[in-house]
Nucleic acid binder design. Structure first.
Lengths: 156, 156, 156, 156
DNA sequence: TTTT
DNA sequence: TTTT
């Protein structure tokens, strides 16, 4: 209702199971990463090329966080509607760093579930039943992440 | 045409005159920053609060770059349609850094001119005539930037 | 939060002063038309061509309606964010008719004021003061493409 | 690149197999309908309610039409990115009628395949192989809300 | 750095 | 880290 507008829409695949944390004030916050891939034919070499872009998503919307917690996991295809927000933090050496995230807020924020990757021998429509968190489950037949130091490899 | 989608729309005000540079391959590239502000009433204190978000925009679309060069300057209100892209670079201490930008590309990218801030005593409809680059003009009656070290203050 | 998504964004010029009406339940509803024009060069003839598309906008969001009532009028440049909705009605001969509108609803709906068309000799920053309704004012020098019989030419 | 912007994004389910026709000039054009459903709890009665909106989609983009022809069919979940366009036609009684469609054009238009509705016992990943047109297949177990007489109920 |  |  003002003179500005900011909206980011990402429809992609979730890279890892979302993290759900609770603020000191008791609010649940969800975060995960989304991958979008583009393929094109290189004009010069004629080769098929692909580039994957990773997007960090953070959700402060209570209702949407609840949906994420229940239905979103590694490999899910989802669309998020939010706003770009750049947040300042300090790294271990004391230097300022900045990270840009797509933030799903109270109004205008949204999440659309587009379904899992099918054909994986999963026995049940996982999207329609609560997911067991903290379990030993290997999500949807996929390989587990190759390690826990993933954060070191992700640029945010 | 694939299984993914990525789009960022920002309608805001341009922070400084765009930079136009030419790649070694001869391609013109434009970049500038866009500010979007939000105001809301704090529930607890009842005070009016405001937050400004800065977005870095880069344009690799030839036609759009040409429009930016001619018509966009500090203070312009424009809408850009592009895609988030995180680019890696190395800072002076040799550390990896990441910057997220809204990139206007060949297809699906767009720029909409929404007009200048009016009432500044400007004598002519600046949006409809070419802008004099490299001139001494002070854009639209605004204060000039407070210095040239602005880059140090912008988180990208 | 479901499996579907619908969003229409129109940034254009308002064709006529908005109509504000009140439902029997006391809710204010605003409606107006927005024009978007495209120009392109005809490949065959090489001539410059232009096409104007008219969009009907209806607003059921109380806050946004209030902004429309105060600040939007013929010639205003605004952006609306809403959803396509096709409504059935009966014409004078008793036949079913359908009209598609962009509906601004409670959540996710939005209106962005992009300013009036400038250069009209207007003496005051009209966007920042209440508008005089029902006055003889001619709006900002902007003319809807086709005169005053717009109703005859617009399919709604 | 001008002063206007128009974009409609619909992520929904395809109501019937798309129609592919060829213009006299030899251009292929695809058209289909997309359903988006919303559910909400009625404030007064507390009942769960649902509303389905139908959107007519037309595609003049050659590459996208080719993808539609091969991969989209009744029940597919797809996202389209296009522009609202209202077209005039004459009904049997000679009266003017208007139909609004989401048009996918050359630039900025897009189609995203989000997968079929799963759990239908289908034996193969249908999205990754050409579709058999004109076959007796019943699509993916997904039923458009209202049977096979869809044409009678859809206002286009 | 913008704008309201 | 995802997906195709």
């Amino acid at each position: 209702m003002a003179g500005h507008f900011s909206q980011t829409i990402i429809l992609g695949n979730v890279g890892k199971d979302p993290e759900i944390r609770t603020t000191q004030g008791g609010q649940k916050v969800a975060s995960f990463t989304l991958a979008t891939s583009e393929t094109w034919k290189d004009k010069q070499s004629g080769e098929q090329r692909e580039k994957t872009e990773w997007h960090r998503v953070v959700c402060w919307n209570e209702g949407v966080t609840s949906v994420i917690e229940r239905f979103v996991r590694k490999g899910s295809k989802v669309q998020v509607v939010g706003q770009n927000q750049t947040r300042k933090w300090t790294d271990q050496s004391g230097q300022d760093r900045y990270t840009t995230e797509v933030v799903i807020k109270r109004f205008g924020g949204d999440l659309v579930l587009c379904g899992e990757r099918g054909g994986d021998g999963g026995s049940s429509p996982q999207q329609s039943q609560p997911r067991q968190r903290n379990s030993q489950q290997r999500s949807g037949g996929w390989d587990a992440p190759s390690g826990d130091n993933l954060d070191d490899e992700i640029p945010f």
